[in-house]
Simulated scan of single mutants.
Amino acid sequence: MDIRIDDLSGDDVKALLEEHLQGMALNSPPKSIHALNIEELKKPEITFWSAWDEGALAGCGALKELDAHHGEIKSMRTSSLYLRKGVARSILEHIIEMARYRGYKRLSLETGSMEAFEPAKRLYLKKGFQYCKPFSNYIEDPNSVFMTLEL
């Protein structure tokens, strides 16, 4: 698995992010969708990675700097052809490693509370994340779950 910084210009990446946004729309009410579009992912405080397997896009993920000590995971998505093959785990481990390298003390995320998000929540729990209160600009929402990892 080759995980590399991506400029979001490739058609494969654009298609995967569109699939990600469509998936959020299918599983979450509009006011509870916090997924970022391509232009938002290009902001300077966000680093976006794509994961490749022998030339095929396997998944993606991003790290947003909230402040000098706190990062947020964004846009974690595995290509449907690579589900349950360890792609999400590899990307998550890469993001955690990068957060530590940057000196963050905490890494947080928001995900959905619905059944469709259970595999993601299990992965985060397995990697040491714990449920927490809303962080940054998030507010309590029955459709959202907030998790954090002390680094």
Rank of each mutant, 00 (worst) to 15 (best):
L16V: 09
Y104D: 08
P44A: 13
S9A: 09
N137T: 14
R122S: 10
A51S: 15
W52Y: 14
G10W: 00
L57F: 06
S80I: 02
T78Y: 00
G86K: 11
N143V: 03
T47V: 15
A56D: 08
M114T: 11
E140F: 09
L123N: 06
E140A: 15
R106E: 13
R122K: 15
L107I: 07
A62C: 02
Q130I: 10
S50Q: 04
L109P: 04
R89D: 15
L123C: 07
I5P: 06
A56W: 00
R102L: 12
M76Y: 03
W49P: 08
H69Y: 01
G23L: 12
N27C: 08
G23R: 11
E72V: 01
S50Y: 10
L109F: 03
I38D: 07
I91C: 08
E93K: 15
E54P: 01
H70C: 02
A15S: 13
W49H: 14
E93V: 13
E18P: 01
L21K: 12
E65P: 00
F135E: 13
S113Y: 01
L83G: 08
P30M: 07
Y131V: 01
M147A: 10
K14W: 00
M1Y: 05
H34P: 00
S80K: 11
V145H: 05
E45A: 14
H94V: 09
G55S: 10
Q22A: 13
D67M: 00
G71Y: 00
F48A: 13
M24G: 14
I3W: 08
L123W: 04
L63G: 00
R84T: 09
E97A: 15
L66Q: 01
R84F: 03
Y104L: 09
E97G: 07
W49F: 15
L123P: 03
I38P: 10
A58Q: 04
N143I: 03
Y138H: 13
E150H: 03
G128Y: 08
S90H: 13
T78P: 02
N143P: 03
I96N: 07
A99C: 09
K31R: 12
E39R: 13
A25I: 03
E65Q: 08
G59H: 02
R77M: 05
E45L: 12
Y104F: 15
R77V: 13
K85F: 01
F146K: 04
I46T: 09
E110M: 04
L92C: 14
H69E: 03
G128P: 09
M147W: 02
K43R: 15
G61M: 06
K105M: 06
L107V: 07
W52V: 05
M114H: 10
E110D: 05
L16S: 11
G10C: 06
C60N: 02
S32R: 11
E97L: 11
E39W: 06
F135C: 12
K42P: 05
F146M: 06
Q130G: 04
R106A: 05
S136Q: 09
L26H: 09
P119A: 04
D11Q: 13
